[in-house]
């Protein structure tokens, strides 16, 4: 892939890095801090991506080694997968939220496991996921070197922190939901917000419940959308899709999307109780999907059902050894 880099705002560059699966591109953000360079997110640790990053930097006559500060929005492989490589080559100060560092450790601990931990298998079973050869579903990044995250960030991001790099200020906004420590970066002097996966222009990020999740990720996600609306933003820089301007409008659309999705699920549960798997089959059952997608759909469904339960709109009880939900 040839380098593609665009200056979207004075001194702020969008670099398009390739991904091996959809979405096929991640945008990372290079910021000229006047005397220092900051990079937000890294792409995957795959040769094609690293080479594309190098070529993009070369158009500005800089190298990976010149990066001074590396911010991670969250721990996912497409965002933080090359962080150890970049840290090692550049000596950059790496910033990540503490909750994301815990996720890094958890993901890495699963690389060497012969099979899923028993509590995960029990969690799948309790939520109605039928027995399956889960080992066939191991993500490619477990073994192909695409995910080599740094395990030793230099600083933890905290909500409200203002990190000064060169002459630029980055305000950290903690936006849990898609991931528990997901953070976005607001540049108050430019009214620019780098939003990672929190606020995408065309698609909605996955919000799911997993064995180690917080109780209400969807509630957190919605609150994070209300939170970012308080900021005065003129340019939004997302990790996937094009830049856009009206962050409040898009945040409201995403909130409405989840409101509708919850209504749709509760409609199914008015007169009968179902597991999250069964609800997901009804909601997303319009086409054939690979098993891994059904699992993701089930855990996103579970996020909606637990949210409805905490709102008092759904009941939750046991049916045999399964957890089922019904509209309250």
């Amino acid at each position: 892939m040839s380098a593609k880099i665009v200056e979207v705002h004075p001194g702020i560059y969008e670099i398009f890095l390739p991904l091996p699966a959809r979405p096929t591109i991640i945008n990372v953000w290079l910021i000229d801090c006047h005397g220092a360079w900051a990079l937000i997110d890294t792409g995957m640790n795959l040769p094609d991506s690293i080479q594309t990053l190098e070529q993009a930097l070369a158009t500005l006559n800089i190298k990976v080694e010149d990066i001074d500060v590396l911010f991670g929005t969250h721990h996912h492989p497409d965002h933080f997968g090359a962080s150890a490589t970049i840290q090692q080559r550049s000596g950059a100060q790496v910033y990540l939220h503490r909750l994301e560092q815990e996720k890094v450790a958890r993901v890495l601990s699963m690389f060497g496991m012969a099979q899923r931990p028993p509590e995960a298998l029990r969690f799948f079973e309790r939520n109605g996921v039928p027995p399956h050869n889960y080992e066939g579903l191991r993500p490619a990044f477990y073994s192909n070197g695409a995910y080599i995250p740094t395990q030793t960030p230099d600083k933890y991001l905290r909500d409200g922190d203002i990190v000064k790099v060169g002459e630029r200020r980055f305000e950290v906004i903690w936006t849990p939901g898609h991931s528990p420590g997901h953070s976005v970066f607001y540049l108050p002097d430019d009214k620019v917000m780098v939003v990672g996966d929190h606020l995408l222009p065309r698609i909605t990020p996955h919000v799911g419940i997993y064995p180690d999740s917080t109780p209400d990720p969807l509630g957190d996600f919605i609150n994070s959308h209300l939170k970012i609306q308080k900021f005065d933003v003129e340019l939004v820089l997302p990790a996937h899709g094009g830049t856009f301007h009206d962050h409040r409008h898009r945040a409201n659309q995403i909130i409405e999307h989840h409101r509708y999705r919850e209504e749709e699920m509760l409609d199914l549960l008015k007169h009968q109780a179902m597991t999250a798997w069964e609800v997901a089959q009804q909601v997303w059952g319009d086409e054939e999907r690979p098993f891994a997608q059904w699992m993701a759909a089930t855990f996103e469904t579970l996020a909606h059902l637990e949210h409805a339960y905490l709102e008092g709109r759904a009941r939750k009880f046991e049916r045999g050894d399964k957890i089922v939900f019904q509209a309250a």
């Binding site: 659309q253 409405e256 409101r259 509708y260 209504e263 749709e264 409609d267």
Partner: peptide, 9 residues
């Protein structure tokens, strides 16, 4: 209600 909720996205 579902039609209106979806359109309101």
């Amino acid at each position: 209600q579902l039609a209106v909720a979806r359109a309101s996205v």
